[in-house]
Amino acid sequence: MAGTREPFWWSLFAAGGAVAALLAPVQIALTGIVIARGWAGQSFTYDRALALVSHPLSRLYLFVLISLPLFHWAHRFRFTLIDLGLKWSRALVAGVCYGAAVAGTILAALVLIRF
């Protein structure tokens, strides 16, 4: 029964929301602004950044940072589509949205393991 799986998707949605609200802005501020503008000086040269990101804990952090917000998006987008009128295909909408998040998660895991 689909209803019984809702708590699972909702918990990923809730966790993704927390990550998107708390971690993502910090990450964007650091990599997108501070480092990109050169304000961090020599602390974040390519080699040093690569070494930092290669650490298993950093990979785990990036995995969480990428994966959970994908499920947050999937859940929101699923209900947005239903609210827009795709009620006749609830299962399909859920499958496409969560499927995309699962695919993104697998892709993130592969990239993070391989580099």
């Binding site: 019984t4 708590p7 699972f8 918990s11 809730a14």
Partner: peptide, 13 residues
Amino acid sequence: AKLASTIDWYKRV
């Protein structure tokens, strides 16, 4: 209520 139901669900699973 969502949080309580979710905790129940994880406990059951």
